Computed example of a mutant assay.
Amino acid sequence: MRNFYQHKKALDENGFSIIENCFSEKVLRKIIRIVENNNFNFSERQLLNRFPEIEKLIFENDNFKKLFRTICEESYFLSKAIYFNKPPKSNWFVSYHQDLSISVKNKIEEEGFNSWTNKKGQLGVIPPLNILKNIVTFRIHLDKTDKTNGVLKVISKSHKKGIIRLDNCFFESKELEEVVCDVGKGGIMLMKPLLLHSSQKSISENDRRVIHLEFCNQEIPMEWLEKKYFNYN
């Protein structure tokens, strides 16, 4: 059986960790078939609510279950599920940023919750720092990802600096360590949402399809939109 404790340590220390070969080619084909049959475009929100068959394929996977048990305590629940794709030769890049917005059910004005958004009827808000610190992201890679098709670049340990003001002074710091995060097909990248990350344009003929799952263990007044506990025993 695989041991994932070193990845928990790396996640806490560096803000990210990469685990290769978590999903077999057979399982990946089943997930990709669902994606293709439903004509996903660049993104698909509330993924596991809309496609429970994908949820089953992920959470019945032994490697994923063991990794999840290692990284997250039983109090953790799903808070967001998105499918992303950067198609072949996509001509956009994403500059350095942190994932600050959470998806919620109700708009309730509460101290510490700021920058409300409404994207196609889905409410988002930036919560207090203690909530962001308790979110963990699992990025499941359906394709090999490298510098040719929009690989993530991260600033190691930047998750320890809270919400960061991105100005010239920050990027001039000699302490910054940029890491290119190649991930093989079927691999998982763990990431803290406060970790600074970016992605480049794709110059490849290959997709960069990722299932992005966020988990948290904190309650909020406005309720999580996609809150779901999993039996992973």
Rank of each mutant, 00 (worst) to 15 (best):
Cys181Trp: 04
Phe230Ala: 10
Glu177Trp: 10
Ser173Glu: 15
Ser204Glu: 02
Gly162Ala: 06
Arg2Lys: 06
Lys192Val: 00
Ile126Glu: 10
Leu100Phe: 07
Val27Ile: 14
Asn38Tyr: 03
Leu11Trp: 01
Ile108Met: 05
Glu36Val: 04
Gly150Trp: 02
Ile155Ala: 01
Ser115His: 15
Ile18Asn: 04
Asn39Gln: 13
Lys160Ser: 14
Arg139Pro: 00
Asn106Lys: 15
Arg33Asp: 13
Val151Tyr: 09
Phe59Asn: 03
Leu48Val: 00
Ile140Leu: 06
Thr148Pro: 01
Ile188Pro: 11
Lys120Ala: 12
Leu152Asp: 02
Lys9Phe: 10
Glu214Lys: 03
Glu177Pro: 12
Tyr229Gln: 09
Glu53Cys: 02
Ser95Met: 07
Lys105Pro: 07
Val136Cys: 02
Ile82Cys: 11
Asn14Lys: 14
Glu214Pro: 08
Ile164Val: 14
Ser204Asn: 02
Leu67Ser: 08
Lys160Cys: 10
Asp12Ser: 13
Phe77Gln: 08
Leu132Lys: 00
Val210Phe: 02
Lys227Glu: 05
Leu100Lys: 06
Lys65Asp: 15
Ser43Lys: 13
Leu166Thr: 05
Glu177Gly: 06
Asn38Gln: 01
Lys120Pro: 14
Thr137Ile: 09
Met189Ala: 11
Asn21Leu: 07
Lys80Ser: 12
Phe64Asn: 14
Asp99Val: 04
Ile203Glu: 09
Cys72Met: 08
His141Arg: 08
Asp12Asn: 12
Met191Asp: 12
Leu196Ile: 06
Leu176Asp: 10
Lys86Gly: 03
Lys119Met: 14
Pro52Asp: 03
Leu123Tyr: 14
Gly162Tyr: 06
Asn217Trp: 04
Arg139Ala: 05
Glu25Met: 14
Lys192Arg: 00
Glu177Gln: 11
Gln98Leu: 14
Val210Cys: 02
Lys228Asn: 02
Lys8Phe: 08
Ser156Pro: 13
Glu13Asp: 12
Ile155His: 05
Asp62Glu: 15
Thr70Gln: 13
Ile211Thr: 03
Lys30Gln: 12
Cys72Gln: 00
Ile31Val: 13
Leu213Asn: 00
His141Asp: 04
Lys144Val: 11
Arg208Lys: 07
Gln122Tyr: 14
Arg33Met: 13
Phe93Leu: 15
Val94Thr: 12
Phe64Ile: 15
Val183Phe: 01
Lys201Asp: 10
Leu78Val: 03
Lys174Asn: 13
Tyr83Gln: 06
His212Ala: 04
Gly15Thr: 05
Phe230His: 05
Ile140Gln: 00
Cys72Leu: 08
Glu73Asp: 15
Pro221Trp: 01
His197Val: 03
Ser79Asn: 06
Asp182Thr: 15
Asn231Gly: 11
Ser24Asp: 13
Arg2Ala: 06
Ser198His: 10
Pro221Asp: 01
Ile126Trp: 09
Leu166Ser: 07
Ile126Leu: 11
Ser202Leu: 02
Leu48Ser: 00
Asn231Glu: 12
Gly184His: 07
Val183Tyr: 03
Ile32Tyr: 05
Leu67Tyr: 01
Glu177Ser: 12
Gly187Pro: 11
Ile163Leu: 04
Ser158Ala: 02
Lys227Phe: 08
Val210His: 01
Lys80Pro: 04
Lys147Pro: 10
His7Asn: 09
Leu190His: 06
Asn118Trp: 04
Glu205Leu: 07
Asn91Met: 11
Lys8Asn: 09
Leu47Phe: 00
